[in-house]
Design a protein around this nucleic acid. Structure first.
Lengths: 226, 226
DNA sequence: CGCGGCTTTGATGTTCATCAAGTAAAGTGG
DNA sequence: CCACTTTACTTGATGAACATCAAAGCCGCG
């Protein structure tokens, strides 16, 4: 049961510069797909035939490095244009995208996207802007993480979940300790060690996947100085 | 003394999809600038008013991290579209670009670029492709470097200079030991230490800036296993 | 109930940054 | 062109941060 793009409350983003006729074109060339936690949305190496974006849930973008170790490049939330990164430059996906909560994604036929980009100049500028933003963000974040020590990285990711994803002090971590480690390039053991340390110092509450930020100021300091 | 874009031997790249009239438009809205080694081509924070690409020489893209430490994100060579990264998403440059050898860059008025992107669909797809490629490359390389130990990183950068930039076994390093360190996230001391080690093991010749690759196979192994 | 994966903590070892001190090279001003 | 200063390079010694290894507890699931 697809939404119609013409009336979708979300088309305020990338598609906001499209006319009604163009929106109908998108609408009739897209499908909306539900994914359960753990489902693979697209797989590294698969041919790219669709432009995909999340409308509900969370998903992880990961790549497998040469030792077979998985690395999480980013966590996508609703209206992140996942797959945008290589969609115009590569034949095949560079990343595997997996739902980490039950999710919904819209998949627009790629040819349709290319046609719209070609025919509508304002839209193509919009797409350029988004690609630019997404990559800039990833590059910035990657350098930032690598410049921090382990405690700074954990502080950063906790605040990131709290501020940008859940917008709450308390939340359920959507990923395992091992996956956190894969996001910020450290070992699961050290993720756990530092979480325990933060708990001991009353910076956070932790119990299983549950986390509550207690001392936002101190965490911010650790993030900035780390 | 500007080249005319219409007859420039280099317009086979991004501009290859432009018609003659459009090339003339580019030509009359661009200036060609010579830079000496060490000259700053553009500075982080400056407003972006031009689309810049190198036609001769080498340049480094660097950012300053929060501790004031400089990090080199990439080395640009002729026909790398430096500044492409944020040109469509930001008002100001995110990176400082500096000539590391005597260089020539073409600077095309940004408004002109946007107009061409808007009016010529094929051109906009071309630009999308390039942005995508450039960011993908940087992201890939960054993750690759961070997954390697120090010896692997040095092997990688030596082979990179040899294979992709100079296309020779022997070359003059265009950057200092300190700058190499900034490229691959390590200390200058360790860059030197490992270069000496490689020299001792007859993998390379080194004298000052001069380097010659002696054992390409072994270096490849160190790069891959590191 | 028992198996396998996730989590936790402790002990150990390696890798790498930091510090220090000296040498070579490259500018700089007289 | 030479003394002088500064910057780049080099090597060794030390210590800290982090990965790895090992072992045990926990939890969900067949």
């Amino acid at each position: 049961m697809d939404y119609k793009c013409e009336t979708c409350e979300f088309n305020s983003h990338l598609f906001k510069v499209l006319g009604e006729e163009e929106l109908i074109k998108v609408s009739s060339n897209k499908k909306q797909v539900r994914y359960q936690k753990g489902d693979i949305i697209c797989k590294s190496g698969d041919p790219i035939t669709e432009f995909i974006y999340l409308t509900e849930g969370l998903a992880k973008l990961q790549k497998i490095n040469r030792n077979g170790k998985e690395q999480i490049v980013s966590i996508a939330k609703p209206f992140d244009y996942i797959g945008l990164l290589s969609v115009f430059s590569e034949e095949n996906f560079n990343y595997t995208i997996t739902a980490i909560t039950d999710s919904v994604a819209c998949r627009v036929n790629l040819q349709t996207m290319k046609e719209l980009t070609t025919s509508n100049g304002r839209f193509s500028l919009e797409v350029l802007k988004y690609i630019s933003l997404v990559s800039d963000d990833i590059i910035k974040k990657t350098y930032l993480i690598n410049s921090k020590n382990l405690r700074g990285r954990i502080a950063m990711i906790l605040l990131d979940f709290s501020d940008n994803i859940f917008k709450e002090d308390a939340f359920e971590l959507p990923i395992s300790r091992k996956e956190i480690a894969e996001m910020i390039d450290m070992t699961p053991e050290n993720v756990i060690r530092i979480l325990s340390e933060f708990k001991r110092d009353d910076l956070i509450e932790v119990k299983g996947k549950f986390v509550r930020i207690l001392d936002r100021r101190m965490l911010g300091k650790i993030k900035d100085l780390g």
